[in-house]
Amino acid sequence: MRILLDKFSKSFGSTKVIEEMDLEVGSGEMLALLGPSGCGKSTTLFAICGIHRPTSGRILFGDRDVTGLPSQERNVGVVFQSYALYPHMTVAENIGFPLTVRRMAAANIRKEAAEIAALVHIDNLLDRRPAQLSGGQQQRVALARALIRRPDVLLLDEPLANLDAKLRLEMRSEIRRLQKETGITAILVTHDQVEAMSMCDRIAIMKAGEIVQISTPSEMYNDPRTAFVAGFLGNPPISFLKGMAEGGAFVFGNSIRLMLPALAAIPDGAVLTLGVRPEHFGTSGDVQVEGKVAFAETQGRENLYDVVLPDRSVLRSIQPVRNDVAVGDPVCWSLDSKAALVFAEDGRRL
């Protein structure tokens, strides 16, 4: 089912958290709301599921306006960051709770709970209590509880934040699998760009209550609209160089010049920021840059280097493992100027 936010605003007292947000999530799509902590992701999610009333604007599920409806009448499934399992109920009772409050017969509830539990692989834990479960198992219970009533919409608020790295990986594909199997429209709230990129069809990146860009993960990575988006996506992150345009070249530091075709149309003297992703600086490229290795780290398959340029700005580089470069060594590596991203002074991409 399609979700539509139309000029949605939310304030708490005098604090405006979200202002006039427009967002459309297509039917069966999984969308990530990505942004730093405190930017209003949970607030948006809570408005969609009806816990918060919007200050103004409309929320539509399909063609139905649900703005004024209480949570109870929206048919949404929510997985909370803390899971919010009911500690006094068994796993089966937790999962079946949405059916219990609909006064379904106990035997049917048990049957459906067992079915959905099998879907998330916890059918052997039905009689445990939440306190007797590991984090990953609790997570699955929360998922099962959100799915049992076949909701129109599945909302996930930082569902993986409390899991350890290995479980996070496992649950990432698990949640995506369930979303695809059930064909449900889902919104995933996260501050982790890896999660957003790996799990979702599209990403809406938020900053201070506004959506900065909505695109598919690869589009957003390769074609970010602002420096903020470019900086938020990618691990290891993009490096930024500050400089100015001069005759079609990017000049920074004490007259280090990089000839960039993209700058041909930029007037001389414009203050610019150049973003270079680590994979675009290293063994192949068209512009040579000299510097000194300040930091080196191996990640097994790849090595990560920080190279300090003469003006003390830093470029990151990621390369296949090599043993001929150590910290302190002077290097002259190539930069792929066609892949470099140019941003205006206000962060807009040029």
């Binding site: 816990i51 209480p70 109870q72 929510v78 803390s82 009911y86 949405p98």
Partner: peptide, 22 residues
């Protein structure tokens, strides 16, 4: 925890059911 109340509302529980079950 407040999220238990949020969760139960989303799960469709009325106030009376919240009192009784949660």
């Amino acid at each position: 925890p407040e999220t238990q109340f949020h969760a139960s509302e989303v799960d469709g529980a009325s106030r009376w059911q919240q009192i009784r079950y949660i």
